[in-house]
């Protein structure tokens, strides 16, 4: 799949933002006043920034408001609704925390739930797509949630929590890669099934339907070299997981070290998220011999 910057930014930032907001909702850390303001600002900034980025991906953003209508079937619609709901639920809680010195814990929990659910719906947008076997596994929501809560914990300055969650995320990420690599073959889609010609023999593209490119090719037939992918996995894993863990464990901590860990993590998240798209092969690429 084409790793479109807007989509990477969208899914990475909203994940982190909602992750942070979720922890805040659970009272972790238990902040109020200016500190709360800063943290909520960060959370909202990330979530809203991400959501804004997603609209850059739209061909016809004028109709974006209609995206709230199809919650019964569409994960994207659910995500839109939940994202707004989460931000709305968290808002009074945050207001209380910042300006009133506190807010009902139940409201915080509800907000946290909404945030996590939002991340889950984001993940389900991808996980529902049978057409992209690498995505269409339960690993996808686990992975997205892992990034959200792990990154959120890091942003929330929770060294211990972050350490546990990042370690968990590390395992999930490695698992997702390993399982993901086999997914396409497991699903069994080949140019033979795609054309129904397998009964005759093995099928190979001789000539594409058009000499140049088209929407399908730019959007869904992105190809990344294997060597390239391995390199990026190492970088992504290092930055998103290994380095933050190292910082958390091997440095004295404190705001600067924490900030460094966050920056590393963010870089890593972008790299792994880029790979999440770039490595995912859409079955339509088969028709183009890719």
């Amino acid at each position: 799949m084409n790793p479109a910057p807007s989509v990477i930014v969208f899914s990475s930032l909203t994940g982190l933002g909602f992750g942070l907001l979720a922890w805040l909702g659970l009272g972790i850390p238990d902040v109020t006043g200016a500190a709360a303001f800063l943290m909520y600002a960060l959370g909202y900034g990330l979530a809203l920034g991400g959501l804004l980025a997603s609209t850059f991906h739209l061909g016809n953003p004028g109709n974006a408001r209609k995206a709230f209508s199809q919650w019964r079937t569409s994960w994207l619609s659910r995500e839109a609704i939940l994202a707004v709901a989460a931000l709305l639920i968290v808002a009074p809680y945050a207001f209380g925390r910042v300006f009133l010195g506190g807010a009902p814990a139940e409201l915080g929990w509800l907000g946290a739930l909404a945030c996590v659910a939002t991340v889950f719906t984001t993940a389900m947008i991808y996980a529902q797509l049978k057409t992209v076997p690498r995505w269409s596994t339960p690993m996808t929501p686990v992975l997205f949630l892992g990034y959200a809560v792990g990154g959120g914990a890091l942003l929330a300055g929770q060294a211990t929590l972050a350490t546990i969650l990042l370690a968990f995320l590390g395992v999930v990420q490695l698992g997702a890669w390993t399982l993901g690599d086999a997914r396409f073959a497991d699903v069994g889609s080949t140019l033979e099934t795609a054309t129904g010609l397998g009964a005759i023999g093995s099928v190979r593209q001789l000539e594409a339907p058009h000499s140049g490119t088209n929407y399908l090719l730019t959007e869904m037939a992105y190809q990344i070299g294997r060597k390239h992918a391995v390199k990026l996995r190492i970088i992504g894993f290092l930055f998103a997981i290994a380095l933050p863990l190292l910082i958390l464990q091997a440095t004295p901590g404190g705001l600067l070290w924490m900030a460094l860990a966050v920056v590393c993590h963010l870089v890593g998240v972008f790299a792994t998220r880029w790979l999440f798209f770039a490595e995912a092969k859409h079955v339509v690429a088969l028709y183009y011999g890719k």
Partner: peptide, 28 residues
Amino acid sequence: EDDCMGCGLCAWACPYGARELDALAGVM
């Protein structure tokens, strides 16, 4: 097309490459 926001998700969901987002109109 009056309702389409051009998100492209339907094209992602289609295994057959049967949907194309128009570059100028921005609709599916």
